[in-house]
């Protein structure tokens, strides 16, 4: 463990250094009544000091993607194919394929929390009720280093101060239920940062929070990222949060990446009909009062009842019969940051 927790990382990797590369990731859940293809061929890169936003509606596989990276998919879920290349030490170590590691192996446990940390949506259910927040942060620190109890305690206080918890010396001995929602999420972030990870995955980190608290937490994450060159994966269903935070965006629908690109291109030149429809249907604070929204017809299909061909075709305004319902479109690469999976742009037809 670093001797002290500096606000700025001593040997921070240069912004833009690739840290994590996911290639063709497939995570399936095989149950008695069929196979749920929760993640079905997902690829993206995560870079130091940059934010990758993964956006999609419920059941699109965004959370399972995060859990697959960390090898914590619940049974009967299993990584069926694909690679998850992590370059440890902020891009200095030899790359490791996490998809090949057993989820309970010593290597994987050394990576979880130390190299890649996760911030969950619901801070209340991710903490133990029976330990003080200090004890829970100390556990993470002592698991990954040989710090003494006193050192770990001091560091826990320092971490709480770093994430803006007022009176950290006192808060460290409190239980999670004694904290407000916003404070709990700050403690959650402090815990994730305890071992100075290079990759932070935040799964709907502000969804359970009020807007003014959300603004505080997003600000904190941005500040920490800048100081520590964190590679951030931000998973959310909120296009507003994506617009404010992400550098690159992955749009998912039913386990597939339908489109990937720089945030400005995704919002101002969306290629995939789903992205286009999604952007039209979100209520905006800039809208004229009492105006109707464009809608996407139908609803998200049940995962066991997945449409043939392109999974979006039954709801797609550009549906081409005999094409879209026959085969799944392949990914068309537009440039190295931009790709789209749709027959309108080739799609391997």
């Amino acid at each position: 463990m670093p001797p002290t927790l500096m606000a700025e990382r001593a040997a921070a990797p240069a912004a833009g250094t690739p840290i994590l590369s996911v290639r063709g990731l497939k995570t399936y859940f095989r149950a008695d009544d069929g196979v749920v293809r929760a993640v079905d061929g997902v690829s993206f890169d995560v870079r130091a000091g940059r934010t990758l936003g993964i956006v999609g509606e419920s059941g699109c596989g965004k959370s399972i993607t995060a859990r697959s990276i960390l090898g914590i998919v619940d049974r009967p879920g299993k990584i069926e194919a694909g690679e998850v290349w992590l370059t440890p030490g902020g891009g200095t170590g030899a790359p490791i394929d996490l998809a090949k590691l057993a989820s309970d192996s010593a290597e994987m446990r050394a990576i979880r929390g130390k190299e890649i940390a996760l911030v969950f949506q619901e801070p209340m259910s991710s903490f133990s009720h029976y330990y003080t927040v200090g004890n829970q942060i100390m556990e993470a620190i002592r698991l990954h280093s040989d710090a003494t109890k006193q050192q770990a305690h001091a560091r826990a206080v320092e971490l709480l101060r770093l994430v803006g918890v007022p009176k950290p010396e006192r808060r460290v001995d409190e239980y999670p239920f004694q904290l407000s929602g916003g404070l709990r999420q700050r403690v959650m972030i402090a815990m994730a940062l305890a071992c100075d990870p290079h990759v932070l995955i935040a799964d709907e980190p502000t969804t359970a929070l009020d807007v003014t608290t959300q603004a505080q937490i997003l600000d904190l994450m941005r500040e920490l990222q800048a100081k520590r060159a964190l590679a951030l994966i931000l998973i959310t269903h909120d296009m507003g949060v994506i617009a404010e935070m992400a550098d690159d965006v992955v749009v998912m629908y039913l386990g597939r990446v339908v489109e990937r690109g720089p945030v400005d291109a995704i919002f101002h030149d969306p290629k995939h009909p789903y992205t286009q429809a999604l952007l039209r249907s979100i209520p905006s604070i800039m809208a004229t009062p009492r105006t109707k929204l464009a809608t996407i017809s139908g609803s998200i299909p049940h995962p066991l009842n997945r449409p043939t061909g392109c999974p979006f075709h039954p709801r797609c305004p550009d549906f081409k019969p005999g094409v879209c319902d026959k085969a799944e479109p392949a990914t068309t690469v537009i440039d190295d940051r931009r790709e789209v999976a749709c027959f309108l742009y080739g799609g391997g037809a």
Partner: peptide, 20 residues
């Protein structure tokens, strides 16, 4: 504080201190 769905709008958010 409401995030605006447009990356070109660099919002000047007013961050409220402390809790409700």
């Amino acid at each position: 504080a409401v995030p605006k769905p447009d990356p070109r709008l660099k919002s000047e958010r007013i961050i409220l201190e402390r809790d409700v």
